[in-house]
Amino acid sequence: MSSTTTLTEVHWFFACKTDDVPLNGGVCVKYKEEQIALFHFSRREEWYATQNMCPHKHQMALSRGMIGTQNGEPKVACPFHKKTFSLEDGRCLSDEAECSLKTYPVKVEENRVYIGFYGGFDKLSLTTV
């Protein structure tokens, strides 16, 4: 919880082509030993990335979840027990006591989708200091 972490350069990892991802849906991306859920919210022309593991029962399933909005805030619902999480900051919308998801920045260039990783740190641990 210290605020002294220095922001290192974002490392952009090439995940897949834009048309590898179903419209308004998600896919799972392998990054080193990690699994990242990548979502193309095409209705809103937005891309999001979160951890693939649902913190509720530790299932690698979020990329297979339905996405949508709650009061305009984009969210994903886990296929297992329908817990919903904000795609913007990862917090659980359906249960205050549930852990939050890690979220990652996404950029698209010439139909190629990249997920951003901070050297050794993820976005969440930097934004909650």
């Binding site: 308004n24 919210f41 209705r43 809103r44 979840g65 339905m66 949508g68 909005t69 709650q70 305009g72 984009p74 969210k75 619902a77 329908k82 919903t84």
Partner: peptide, 19 residues
Amino acid sequence: YDDVLDELGHGDGCEVCKP
């Protein structure tokens, strides 16, 4: 689904209305 949302609904849908 998208056409239904455009013509009869509003916003971007969710895990309740989609199925």
